[in-house]
Design a protein around this nucleic acid. Structure first.
Length: 303
DNA sequence: TCACGTCAAGCAGAT
DNA sequence: ATCTGCTTGACGTGA
């Protein structure tokens, strides 16, 4: 069981998700920005190692415009060495990595140009993880996408598109239940057709799910992950009081988190904390995990 | 130095 | 029709 937070670290004073306007695109600007982002990622990883945060989501902004037609620069080759170094740090310290392409990536869109752009963006994500030489347990998580009023058709369309993807994407792709359209049940439906592992989002399931016991849910999820996929991943976040169901809290709700950890006895998974204050809440979560004798002191002695 | 209009991209639901 | 949310405001022009 590892604990992580997504994309940004508020403590160390660098930003690894710097970008710029399309209008200001130039090769120099790209190189400068990517150098900044990769250097910052290294600092974040080192901070995380020191603090036992062994799960991290790398921002999709790492290489701005990587999949945009304007970018003809061979960033893969240019930054090869830096990627390799980052990969070494990640592997030497047994860090789990995920990425989460954003809302514009809709593999099953009914607009062909959207599908094509989405595939390019998925290739970019896969390239980043491949350049770091990471195993297939480094994952790219995606929602099922556009429903257009017919979920069954939408799921089938996703499966058709998935089948045609390059293996470098397929081996990393996992799907996440969302809080609006595609519930865990829908993801299981897609799994039956496609074999795509399910990343379980606890809060989304609370908003769009049923009262099924958490153990039973985790049991179903676990079965969707093959050995080569690694330990199942879950997203955990706390509900922001008084806001629409599913909106993320500033800080972790420790009572709720404790309950979740208690209810999930017997299951191992890596937890991504989608909480706005990032590492601050991760410290609190880690404390709870560490104080739970089930997990002992072990996991953090990864040497 | 700072205010503030705008930013590559999709989709769904609320107003 | 327009706005908001999504994992996260931040870029960059003009004064």
């Amino acid at each position: 069981m590892k604990i992580g937070y997504p994309c940004i670290n508020w403590t160390i004073g660098c930003k690894g998700n710097k970008t710029f306007r399309l209008k200001s695109y130039s090769e120099d600007r790209l190189i400068e920005t990517v150098n900044n982002n990769l250097d910052c990622l290294k600092k974040i990883l080192n901070y995380n190692i020191k603090n036992n945060f062994l799960f991290f989501r790398i921002t999709s902004d790492l290489i701005p415009f990587a999949s945009h037609p304007i970018c003809t620069f061979n960033w893969q080759d240019f930054f090869k060495q830096k990627f390799l170094e980052l990969g070494e740090i990640i592997k030497d310290n047994d860090i789990r990595i995920s990425m989460h392409p954003d809302q514009f990536i809709v593999l099953n869109s009914n607009r062909e140009e959207v599908v094509n752009r989405s595939i390019k963006e998925l290739e970019y994500h896969a390239d980043v993880l491949d350049l770091m030489n990471l195993e297939s347990d480094a994952k790219i998580q995606l929602h099922i996408g556009g429903a257009y009023g017919d979920k069954q058709k939408s799921i089938s369309r996703f499966n058709e598109k998935y089948k045609k993807l390059d293996f470098k994407i397929k081996k990393r792709l996992v799907i996440e239940n969302d809080d609006k359209i595609f519930s865990l049940k829908d993801c299981l439906n897609l799994f039956d057709k496609s074999g795509i592992p399910i990343l379980f989002d606890v809060l989304h399931h609370k908003v769009l799910g049923d009262d099924e016991k958490i153990e039973s849910v985790l049991e179903k999820q676990r079965k969707t992950w093959k050995k080569s996929d690694g330990i199942p991943m879950i997203d955990y976040s706390s509900q922001k009081d008084g806001f629409r169901p599913g909106s993320h809290a500033e800080s972790i709700d420790l009572k709720d988190f404790k309950n979740f950890i208690n209810d999930s006895k017997g299951y191992d998974f890596d937890i991504m904390l989608e909480i706005k204050d990032k590492e601050k809440s991760a410290f609190k979560a880690l404390k709870i995990i560490n104080s739970d004798h089930r997990f002992g002191k072990m996991r953090w002695n990864h040497g």
